[in-house]
Design a protein around this nucleic acid. Structure first.
Length: 271
DNA sequence: ACGAAGCCCTGCAAGC
DNA sequence: TGCTTGCAGGGCTTCG
């Protein structure tokens, strides 16, 4: 399940191989993703050069002179570079071949991802225009969260996972950040103090930045490897540890459902 | 306007 | 062993 660090690792990993490259062939095998891929995608892309590769939240933006290809990995998607002789798998839905001979291959077993095309400013696209700030940017801080949360009664975990509040905080990192900040996941967002929000914002930045740094060690996986950075390498304090003991206080971690999402927390450390 | 639930889809695990 | 059922998960969309 690609979280923001994995999307950024994908972006920086494939960037050197796609920037300045011209698209020589496009193969669509399964256009039905979360939304259908654009009609005549091959005609839109063929012969054009990738000028930029940016990320906004978990969206990847491939800038061409004629428009922007928007990619989202959903929860099971991946983009990696392969050579032409690599066998096509059951869930390899899209290939974009470059003049270098390399192929950018989009794979997504559950098809929650998306491949879209826009000819306007991509940041004005309906899926992007109302997104919250980047968690690692300067405008995201405790004061911002505190201000935005006043009067809101929803659980803090749902609040920080809302992409209109801040992008890129998925279920894993929401659990981890709230644990590190000592905040009970169901606490109403509007009833958390400024000082606690300042701490929470710092923790979110730290956790995400660290995960991106660790992702950097797996960059080669995006070129000819298995393309799976794998979260098992990371040290997770609570996620996936329901019923096990808290690393800090040794009491059992509790697992609940909150907003359709698995939520794990320590009843002693998080209030 | 807000919050909660629904939905998309497949792989995997558990139950029979 | 093989089939059936349930569930996970990002995040947009719909409902109340």
């Amino acid at each position: 399940m690609p979280e923001l660090p994995e999307v950024e690792t994908t972006r920086s990993g494939i960037e050197p191989y796609v920037l300045g490259r011209t698209i020589t062939a496009v193969v669509v095998r399964q256009p039905k993703l979360r939304w259908p891929m654009p009609d005549r995608l091959a005609a839109l892309l063929h012969g054009h050069c990738i000028r930029t590769l940016d990320r906004r939240g978990k969206y990847l933006l491939f800038g061409l002179s004629t428009g922007t290809l928007i990619a989202h990995l959903g929860m099971s998607g991946s983009l990696r570079l392969v050579t032409e002789d690599v066998l096509v798998g059951a869930h390899d839905h899209l290939d974009i071949r470059f003049d270098s001979g390399r192929v950018l291959r989009y794979t997504d077993p559950r098809r929650f991802g998306a491949i879209l095309w826009t000819e306007q400013d991509p940041l004005q696209h309906s899926l992007l225009h109302s997104l919250g700030p980047e968690p690692l940017g300067v405008e995201f801080d405790g004061d911002y969260l505190h201000r935005l949360s006043r009067g809101r009664s929803l659980p803090i975990k749902s609040f920080i996972m809302d992409s209109h509040v801040v992008v890129g905080v998925g279920n894993i990192y929401a659990n981890e950040a709230l644990y590190l900040a000592g905040i009970y996941p169901k606490r109403a967002a509007g009833k958390i103090s400024l000082s606690r929000y300042r701490n929470l914002a710092e923790v979110i930045k730290t956790v995400l930045a660290q995960a991106i740094a660790e992702g950097g060690t797996t960059l080669r996986n995006f070129v000819g490897g298995d393309g799976k950075p794998g979260y098992f390498k990371q040290s997770l304090n609570v996620y996936g540890r329901g019923g096990l003991n808290c690393i800090t206080c040794d009491s059992p971690l509790r697992e609940i459902r909150l907003g359709q999402r698995t939520t794990v927390y320590c009843t002693q450390c998080q209030r």
